[in-house]
Simulated scan of single mutants.
Amino acid sequence: MNEIISRSISAMFGEGSVNHNRREFIASNVDSSRTVLNHEYTYMDIHDAYHQLFDEAVKRYNNDQKRPERRIKDYYEKIRTGKQEKTFYEVIIQIGNKDDMNAQSPNGQLAEKILDEYMQTFQTRNPNLFVYSAHLHMDEETPHLHIDFIPYITESKRGPDTRVSLKQALAKQGFTGGTRSNTE
């Protein structure tokens, strides 16, 4: 069993669909009779998450601006329409595949337990990745986690003192790779 787990943990970054993760719509690969087995660890509307994380910093930044056109009206919209950062990132974590860790098998139950333990401490291990939505799906062939997060830093010297930055958030946690794409 350890061999299966050690060679088959996979993670991928996706564009994310919180509506899919929350089962606001049911895709064709979902067994809706098993949706009750899913775990919703946390959910907050992304706009509310942005307000919680950035409103005070944006207020301080705006108070320091002499020219009105430099003030930020809506930080979420600034990030959404900008080219530097994404509004959020999603990581999907799965152990094995439908053949060796099927959700309805004993191995699938083991995968559920491992993924649950992983999620329980994710925010503590990654303090600069604010998790606003996290779900464990047991209603598809293989158990997997969807973790949606906003990477942020504090004490920034540029722009608001608290701002979105994946590269710098990861660097604060010890992950550096030189260029932005290498770090990410």
Rank of each mutant, 00 (worst) to 15 (best):
L170W: 03
T162R: 15
A11C: 11
A57Y: 10
V91E: 06
T124S: 03
T81V: 03
H20N: 14
I4H: 06
Y61S: 10
Q52F: 14
E40C: 11
K66R: 12
N97S: 08
P106S: 07
G159F: 00
N19V: 14
K73S: 05
Y43E: 08
F25E: 14
R7P: 00
S28T: 15
F54I: 11
A134Q: 08
V36G: 10
S133E: 13
V58E: 05
D100V: 06
L37S: 07
E112G: 00
P151L: 10
R180G: 02
M44L: 14
L166G: 03
M119L: 04
I114F: 09
Q84S: 07
F149G: 08
S105Y: 04
L145Q: 06
G174Q: 03
N126R: 09
Y76P: 01
M12I: 10
K157T: 06
Q168E: 06
R7A: 07
R34I: 02
K83H: 08
N2W: 13
R60P: 04
S156F: 04
I147L: 05
H146I: 04
D161M: 07
G16K: 14
A11T: 13
T176L: 03
K59L: 09
A57F: 06
S28W: 13
T142V: 06
I147N: 05
N62R: 12
H47M: 12
A111M: 03
D139H: 08
A111P: 01
S181C: 00
F25R: 14
L115G: 02
G96V: 00
N182D: 05
E117L: 08
E77I: 07
R70Y: 08
L115A: 03
V58L: 06
I153V: 15
F122E: 00
N102R: 09
T154F: 08
D55W: 11
F130D: 03
L115W: 00
N182F: 04
T142R: 02
Y50L: 12
A11N: 12
H137D: 05
K172A: 01
I114A: 04
I153M: 10
